[in-house]
Design a protein around this nucleic acid. Structure first.
Lengths: 228, 228
DNA sequence: ATATGTGAACCCATTCACAGCG
DNA sequence: CGCTGTGAATGGGTTCACATAT
């Protein structure tokens, strides 16, 4: 039995050994800090970030160690400075170019979502097999037939792919995108992708999530004694 | 032999003693087994389940211990029997009743997705503030105004809520659903919900996921030496 | 031989607790 | 004092390795 995706850490750059969970929280902190700026809040304590995020203050401080920002023992963290540090950490200025494959209901939802966002995120193009959808713009983004997927992605140096196709086609699409040098996937199809070990896949599998929620919801009910 | 759900602590944190990650994998195995049945596959090895799931075979065997199914040292696990055991574990036969709040792009995508599914999942009703959407059926499911949310959910004994509203409204909706005895949330809004500790929340936050994917995609590129 | 079942070891994320500092 | 920064301790999820079964 060979080991799956060895989360090879270290090497060539100091940002690689970051645990996934830590990274998720850092992204969350960044969002919270943006809100804090809108609220004209000059500084923020670890326990405030913690309360909003749903973690402990020690966790927050530990996480912030990884981005190397110094807080102030009396006033906590300077919001603007910390945000800037996180922006640098996430390399916000260079933006995220993505391609979206599959323009069904879910694909359109994502499209609507990110096309309304800041330029930080940008869906460069979408792709679909349905001729009725291709060769026109949807939510302001061009939709091309699948034949164009690999060349477009290569030419435009896009390295993030969003997969929103039926489960049966997900692997085929992933293979194409790997060919096109995509190294990060957001996979919304209820299927597990096989990709080279140096490619990252994040699965957002709603069916499994619902299964999980349902399971825990039931156990909560049982504990409370509410019998349905 | 009946299952031995870990004999300790079911306080804050993990409910029912089953780790979240384990539960996710169990749900995944169940799906794989359903496919195996369609393929007329009579039995399956832990290393096969592992390869498809992207984990190790030891992990699979460890996971299956929690549902207490015995495999066969020579032929692995009997597909039908293991599936049946998992169905029991997930209490499949009683089904999952859900309410969906927010019928925007994302809400409609989810609706389309689950309305095509087996009766195991069932969205009992949807709710929205937009009068143009309410009091009619969308994808075959009734959409009601928000005033009906709490009474409907209580009357129909629904305990799972899907939140697909804008971030600014997510907390308000969650508060209502908690009132209505909902104990499990699938939260698709980019916001953190504050709920009582005996309520389970699963966050599917696409913005954060994309951030994560992008980060790791970049580090993969750096490792490969592809300079964009 | 080959696959399962599982105690034990291992690893790593989280938490603790306290030193340091304004 | 209150809050940050962090070594040390904790805890729990994963992997190892081997006994067991066929």
């Amino acid at each position: 039995m060979t080991k799956p995706i060895s989360p090879q850490k270290l090497l060539s750059g100091e940002l690689q050994g970051i645990p996934e969970r830590t990274l998720e929280r850092l992204a969350l902190y960044r969002r919270i800090l943006k809100n804090a700026i809108d609220d004209r809040k000059p500084s923020i304590y670890s326990h405030e970030l913690a309360a909003i995020s749903g973690v402990t203050s020690a966790q927050v401080r530990r996480d912030l160690m990884t981005v190397g920002y110094q807080g102030h023992p009396r006033h906590g963290y300077e919001v603007e400075g910390l945000l800037k540090q996180l922006d640098t950490f996430f390399d916000v200025q260079s933006g995220i170019k993505m391609v979206l494959v599959g323009v069904g209901n879910l694909g359109r939802a994502i499209l609507a979502y990110f096309s309304a966002k800041r330029p930080h995120f940008s869906i460069e193009a979408t792709f679909d097999t349905d001729p009725a959808k291709t060769d026109r713009a949807i939510h302001g983004v061009r939709c091309y037939p699948m034949e164009r997927l690999v060349p477009f992605t290569l030419e435009n140096r896009v390295h993030v792919g969003i997969i929103a196709v039926p489960a049966t086609e997900a692997q085929r699409v992933a293979d194409l995108l790997v060919q096109a040098n995509v190294t990060g996937f957001l996979n919304l199809a209820p299927a597990r992708l096989k990709v080279p070990s140096d490619v990252f896949v994040e699965n957002l599998d709603m069916t499994l999530s619902i299964e999980k929620v349902s399971f825990f919801a039931k156990s909560c009910l049982n504990r409370e004694g509410h019998i349905s």
